Structure formats: structure tokens, C-alpha cells
Simulated assay, not measured.
Amino acid sequence: MRYGFLGPETTFTHQALLQALAAEDAALTGAADTGRGVATTRASAAGRKSAAERELRPYGSVAAATADLVAGDLDALMAPIENSVEGGVSGTLDVLAATQRIHIVAEQIVPITFVLAAREAVDLDDVTVVASHTHAQAQVQSWVRAHLPHAHLEPASSTAAAARDLAEADPAQARGRAAVCSPLAAQHFGLTVLAERIEDTIGAQTRFVLVARDGRIPRRTGADKTTVVVHLAHNRSGALLEMLEQFSAQGVNLSRIESRPIGDALGRYSFSLDLEGHLEDRRVAAALESLHRVCPAVHFLGSYPRADGRRSVIDAHTEDPAYERARQWVEGLRRQIVQG
């Protein structure tokens, strides 16, 4: 298996991928432990072989990793999609919305904490440039304003890239520079931590999605999420309300809704949505069928297990048995139609 992630090593995306692979290993080990004799030995050996054969590739952007995924050079990729402070990650949302033949198959949630790191111990007053990813900068802006009021913020492709570039710079270039990164990145690249837990919101989290290609949809677990991108009719009043009513009518709760520009003209937007439930749930399938009828485009991005394992609260009339009873009732009525 070949996995891509937003690199370099020690980014939060890299941590999310390692979390996902550790969970996969735990599942394999658990499955092996339930077996007996030769079956147990074979399952354990298969799990070890699978872990040993993994290749983890860092990428400079989600778009580049997605291109390799579609081309068949990767089997899956991990990408950030939502932050509890900053909301949706536009780069990931836009790439997923514009790419066919890929599906989200899993998600991971990573707690986010930042440090300010430099090549060597210096006073905060001597820091003139702070580099990091723009999302990280937004999450530490209050701390930076309070403690580094004269520092210039410089964007980097990732928090780990900011730490790596600082570590690789010559002493003259590194003078007065610092990076906002994870504690792991600071340690990995041999930087000195000037300040810890500098995030403005303690307890912030980022949600990451594991994306695969060619229509691979995991089975329903009962604690699932479905992601879609929907285009609205741009010349019809009430189009947004009409779209939302499809979910309300079927008892499907939305856990995330964000608008993103389609790009072909001003005022044209699509909506990226997370639904509570799985494609196998009758209420979710019915909502998607309705969307397909009333919306110009519906892009299905996957049904997959929730990272938090939380099950949705469902009204009795939207559970699968209620849909089946309704279907049988209508079929009974149809059989009474006079033929000829």
C-alpha cells in the first residue's frame, strides 16, 4: 500500500496517517487473536506483512497527492478537511469537489497544539520573522500579537516545512527567525522550543480524511458519516431551501455545511455537506435520490465510519424498517391497478 500525506514528516497530516495505520494494525491484531491454530498464525503474518509493505510519501500539496492517487501511483492519501477553529480547509474541499473516481473511506481527529521554535535559545524580542502554515498562523494570532508584536508572519506549505526549512537554513539566514509547529516537528528537526501551548484555543482539533479511488465504500457501522458536494440551480429562488428540505424530509441531520465558489462565474457556489448516516441507511439513500432529482449536480464523496464512534439519534419513522413498511404498502396498492 502506498499512502500520500501533506509533508514533510511530522506534520499533523502525517500524525493523522500514523494514527489511521495504527488503528488498522490494531484491528488486524484483534482479528488474528480471535482465531485459532494455523488461521491465527496466518492472520498475524499477513498483518505484519501488510505493515512492512506500506510506503508513506510526503507531498507539498493535496492537489499533487490527489493527482497521483487518480493516476494510480498512490493507493490512498490523508488530507486535512476541517479545523475546529478555522472551519473547512478550502484546498482539500476544492480538490475533492473537482475530482472524480475518489471516495473518503475513513477519518481521523488529531488534537492540535503548537510551539514556537528557533535554531537556538533567544529572547522573544529578538524574533523578527515567524513562519508557519496559514491555518496554524490563524490559530496562534492572539498569542503572536501579544508576545511578538513586531514579528512578520511568513507563510509555509505546512507547519513541519516551516520547522524543516528553519533547521536547514544557514546561521545567518536563521537569525531572528522562528517557526510555529508541532512539538513533534520541533523535536524531529532539532529546534529549540521558545514557548509551548501557544494556540489561542486550548483543545482545538483538526479532522483528516483518508481518500481512496475507484468506488471503495466501507460497509455501514451504525456510527457513520456521508460527504457530498451539491450544486444549486443559480436561476431559481429558494434553491438552497429546496436542497435543505430534502434532508429534513428524510430525517437526515447535517453536521457540516460550507459554501465554496464553483469558479466559473461570480455568485456561483457549491455546498460541501457532511450528513449523519451511511449510504446503506434508507433515509440517507432517499435524501440523495431527492437531491439528484432537484439539483443540477450531486458529487458523492463517500460514506465512512465516524472517528468519534457516535451514533445518530434517529426518529422511528426514518429508521430502515419504516421505509420498508412504506415500500410494501405502496407495492400492495400497485398490485390493485387494473391492467389493460
Rank of each mutant, 00 (worst) to 15 (best):
G309D: 02
A51P: 01
F5L: 04
V122E: 13
S157N: 07
E289M: 07
R311S: 07
N235E: 10
I81L: 11
H14I: 05
T99P: 02
R283G: 06
L288C: 09
V209D: 05
E319D: 04
M1E: 03
V144I: 15
R236T: 01
Q205I: 12
Y3F: 09
A71V: 05
R175M: 03
A121I: 07
L28S: 02
E82L: 15
A64S: 08
V85D: 15
A212T: 04
V85R: 15
Q15P: 03
E86S: 15
A106E: 01
A297Y: 00
A287R: 10
S255T: 14
I112A: 15
L288Q: 06
A326P: 08
G222M: 02
R213F: 03
Y269P: 00
Q336M: 13
V115G: 10
A52E: 14
P111Y: 04
S50H: 10
G37A: 05
S44M: 06
L28P: 00
E82T: 13
A136I: 13
L273H: 11
H278N: 02
R164W: 13
A51D: 06
N83L: 09
L77G: 02
A172C: 03
L244V: 12
V284L: 11
V211S: 00
E120W: 11
A161H: 14
S290R: 14
A233Q: 01
A52Q: 05
S157H: 06
A121D: 15
L184V: 12
E53Q: 10
A16W: 06
R175H: 06
T66V: 08
L273F: 08
L17W: 04
G263T: 00
R268N: 03
D73M: 06
A169W: 09
R334F: 13
G263R: 00
S157F: 04
A249Q: 14
S303G: 03
A322P: 04
